[in-house]
Write a protein that binds this DNA or RNA. Structure first.
Lengths: 248, 248
DNA sequence: CGCAGAATTGATACATCTCAAGCTGGGTGG
DNA sequence: CCACCCAGCTTGAGATGTATCAATTCTGCG
């Protein structure tokens, strides 16, 4: 069942789709060359677990393409998603051996990996990498705190709307199509995964999506393809104050 | 009403209570000297707001003594605490101008501050600081994700128990008294602040504390002083699997 | 002493969960 | 090519945990 592959054919960093967003974004060409020497690719199929919580983790890496999730699970099975990893996001923690979370590929996934030791050594003498990693970590911390507000204080309907705005925004920033108000995108998550993200049950997720559809806030083509006729309306539903920056 | 003071008398870094835990922990003595030149102290009274969300923030700093909270507020007043700042914790984000959160002193508070520009410059040429800040940020991110599980999936009783374990642990790691199973500490938060931390109402917090008292999980002397006769029992109530590391 | 902020307790309302039944659509084997 | 199957999803009815509204009771302090 383990269909993970280590891809050996080398891809040039210069042609890499996440060249300017990932942990290597600030690297000069000579630094990139050294990274190129120690990097390797791994691919995973949709549904595969990349790392188990508690497992020893001897590598770090960036998502090149596809989507993965970070989840925590309690003994009795309750699970909470704590992170959604999109292309350019970083996985792993320099200076720690085990993973604190399960990392699961929700779509087919390609990662650009480094064994931890060489990466740490590289980081120690390459401030560009350390600084970029700090910046990315601070962004993730902000996102996590934003999410704490969603989890702690928003209603089910607001939670769904919040998730939709986030996916819509991320999608827009990747694909650069902001067709004036009307946005279209695919949900990369099952209802159950959305529930785990939002601290809800999948039934409640389904009901609230139906409700938003009934109220004309969104429309669906199939179960995953979403159209948002009026983004500011969606923002209102999410309880977000600012209608600010479509492409923040 | 603004009773904040800038304390001018200089305190030696060598004698600083957070010397070995704060962002400066890894600094050599020459680096410390340069930090000493640009640092200044500010104190705040209990209840005072240190920074308003959205405000321009021209400094960063560390909590030297006292406790502060990081909170987010929605238009309609719903509030979620997203961070609890104890001595040695860092406030502010290099590379960003405004604060995303309200920072409020819940007790009298002393902070060791740096104007942002000089600090950023210092950071750029002092890897010890940048690395320590990365490490601290990663720790905060882990804590935030842990908290997402609490907010999203735990019951009110488990939330209270979780908060108590966290406070107990932090208190123990500061004061180094682990009198074999029986732990004693003060709650640094009002019921309302606890509610804001846990995504509950203050009434529910009060009820669950009463329930834990009734069930012998904790006992109270006054409203703030807590005794935990059996810490592992409290951990069970929190829904945490491991009874692991009292002083992790 | 008496006031004010903090906390407790009670009664009821309501949002979300739980349990259960059906639906839908895409893939597979006969 | 059709029938079936199954994961993913939707919808319903009832149970339950927490919020809400309201009334007291503490506790420290001027």
């Amino acid at each position: 069942m383990l269909n993970e592959k280590t891809v050996s054919h080398s891809v040039e960093c210069d042609d890499c789709p996440i060249r300017h967003r990932a942990v290597c974004a600030r690297c000069e060409s000579d630094e990139l060359e050294r990274l190129e020497e120690i990097k390797y690719y791994r691919s995973f199929e949709a549904g595969q677990t990349v790392i188990w919580s508690g497992d020893r983790m001897d590598f770090v890496g960036s998502v090149v393409s596809g989507i993965a999730t970070l989840t925590q699970t309690m003994e009795d099975g309750r699970t909470q998603m704590v992170g959604l990893l999109l292309p350019s996001d970083f996985v792993g923690r320099p200076g720690r051996d085990g993973s604190a979370y399960d990392v699961v590929a929700t779509t087919d996934l390609v990662m650009c990996c480094f064994r931890k030791k060489p990466f740490e050594a590289m980081m120690a003498r390459t401030p560009h990498i350390a600084h970029r990693l700090l910046e990315m970590t601070l962004d993730e911390l902000d996102a996590a705190r934003e999410w704490m507000l969603v989890l702690g204080r928003k209603t089910a309907r607001e939670k769904i709307a919040s998730l939709l705005t986030i996916i819509a925004r991320r999608d827009a920033s990747l694909n650069l199509r902001s067709s004036k108000g009307s946005m279209v995108f695919d949900l990369p998550l099952t209802r159950e995964a959305m529930a785990d993200y939002l601290g809800l049950t999948l039934e409640t997720v389904s009901r609230q999506i139906s409700a938003l559809k009934r109220d004309g806030v969104i429309s669906l083509q199939g179960k995953r393809h979403v159209t948002v006729p009026d983004f500011s309306r969606l923002l209102e539903e999410a309880g977000d104050d600012s209608d600010g920056g479509l492409l923040a």
